[in-house]
């Protein structure tokens, strides 16, 4: 029984270390998503807008509040 407990603890140790190791990799896809969201806000682009509004003036300033679902 005691052995089994030790084994479990070792397994927990290994698996949690594994999780932490995975987490140190840069989450490229998540970063891209975050970048898109921030750029849309800073440049006041609507997510589906064509970058056609060259004049840089958003049709409705309220658009900036229309964040995408996280």
């Amino acid at each position: 029984m005691q052995k089994r407990l030790v084994g479990t603890l070792v397994a927990i140790g290994l698996i949690t270390t594994g999780c932490v190791t995975i987490n140190i990799y840069f989450p490229a896809a998540a970063a891209e998503k975050a970048a898109d969201k921030i750029i849309d806000e800073v440049w006041q682009l609507k997510p589906e807008a064509k970058p056609d509004a060259k004049s840089g003036k958003p049709a409705n300033p309220a658009a900036e509040n229309k964040g995408e679902v996280k």
């Binding site: 029984m1 005691q2 089994r4 407990l5 479990t8 603890l9 397994a11 927990i12 698996i15 949690t16 999780c19 932490v20 987490n23 989450p27 998540a30 970063a31 998503k33 975050a34 969201k37 921030i38 996280k70």
Partner: peptide
């Protein structure tokens, strides 16, 4: 003793679940 082992496994899975759920970057 068996209960403790079980409890530890539950805790482990709870932890693993929460760790992998953090897929989005914090920007707020």
């Amino acid at each position: 003793m068996k209960h403790i082992t079980k409890l530890l496994w539950i805790m482990l899975f709870a932890f693993a679940g929460s760790a992998s759920a953090a897929a989005d970057l914090e920007v707020n």
